[in-house]
Design a protein around this nucleic acid. Sequence first.
DNA 1: TATGTCATTTTATCAGACAATTGACAACAA
DNA 2: TTGTTGTCAATTGTCTGATAAAATGACATA
Lengths: 265, 265
Amino acid sequence: MAGSEYDSFEDDTDEEAYALDTGPLDTSFRSQIPQGRLHGALAHKIGVDILKGAYAPGETLPNEIQFSSSLEISRSAFREAIRILAAKGMVESRPKTGTRVTERKRWNILDPEVLKWMFETEPGEDFIMDLFELRLITEPAAAALAAQRRTDAHLKAMDRALIVMAEQTLATEAGRQADLDFHDALIDAANNEALASLSSSIGAAVAWSTRYKQRARALDRDPVPDHRAVYEAIARSDVNDARWCMEALVRLALRDTQRSMGILK
Amino acid sequence: MAGSEYDSFEDDTDEEAYALDTGPLDTSFRSQIPQGRLHGALAHKIGVDILKGAYAPGETLPNEIQFSSSLEISRSAFREAIRILAAKGMVESRPKTGTRVTERKRWNILDPEVLKWMFETEPGEDFIMDLFELRLITEPAAAALAAQRRTDAHLKAMDRALIVMAEQTLATEAGRQADLDFHDALIDAANNEALASLSSSIGAAVAWSTRYKQRARALDRDPVPDHRAVYEAIARSDVNDARWCMEALVRLALRDTQRSMGILK
DNA sequence: TATGTCATTTTATCAGACAATTGACAACAA
DNA sequence: TTGTTGTCAATTGTCTGATAAAATGACATA
């Protein structure tokens, strides 16, 4: 598993986190150890710029000729990048008028990539609250469904993940992966494709943010007991307790995230 | 408002519903009164084919040269279409290996376009159940939040929409629009951007399906009383009742959808 | 005032070339 | 045998430059 280095969800290296913001018209995204394809890297860059507000909704981008040549990139690669952003609802193109940023309401902010870009831009507190409020709605419900529908295989997978988490902690890549594995197994147990899509999008984005978390300060709290409690409730098929324990878990995660982002002191 | 005819979410005309399925390698999408851009139409076509299972996950599509020339389309337009699908997690390209359909688990099925494509393919009962199960989780929660946070302006907008619904019914475009307006106002009242994104994606797709619904058989049930009950609870700031009424509303919508799709007799 | 025509701007599409990546396999070495 | 290295070929990726089509806004006309 562990994601082929080569897919549309480009694996960002840590270098990127240290990249200087040189404004919307630089070409640094090119020299930054050009990971992945040009169109993907460019979509990423413009997407993040839009999320940062460098281009406001309603604003039209420079036209293809100007923009692509100012970025020293071919029109085709540029257009493919724009196509990606349009597919995520962030821009809209039409002849004569040009390509303009759509109103924020229409952005697919639950798209995994958009969500990841969001967390790269140090999103506002209100957005983080919205996201966790949504998690607070869906995750406990998912846990409740999992408690009803889980099989022994699901329990086994969750248990395995918890063991790895316990010995690796979230400071290691393996530990974070185990955390994801736990949630994946839980979502799989809930047996709802739509819920799974939503949950894995958000989960991945939040997990991504924990990398910054860990960088900022080592977490003092041990995450295993909360997870274990959820596991036990699901193992007992205790629907209400599963719901409740998961709610507690998400609330703790929220606090950790707020703390790491300086919202709580 | 009412969506410019000219955006990446191409407005499909009714003609399309009558288009014959001529298999994956035809070029009919071109002559079908070519609505919108070629890349969008092609992404639509291939996307729907993937959802229908014409291309299975893991399968690699014909290479760019072959595929684009068999469709009598330029490579650039073809590539832009593929870029769109990749942005939605449905395919993955790499040199030498080609472009292959990704595993279903990675598709962004909550993307508004993907969802719309899904409903065009007469999705399976299990998918519809998953989707309504998710609505059953999120919509009552949204109604509860709306009951806490609504302003008089929200109430006014909802009331206006209900009046239009009452006099137009869901058989007219204006009536369906009023239905959407009601839910938009409700979601706006809930004041959660992430929840709004999710809810409007699903809501739009389901509303889209009601067009087929109406075509199949006129709905006997009057939808206004259920909506009115939700409205009143929100107006009273009665959180629990708002949640409960919305749950009832979604359950009724589920029954209608099942009925129209022949799942219930 | 309303309507139709037309020029202009911009994206959309096309064609064809070359570059870069990578998977497969052969050749070779330890 | 086993692992390493190198070569080849297939495919996507990128570039260039040209032409088509769409939509806006100005302008003429009724």
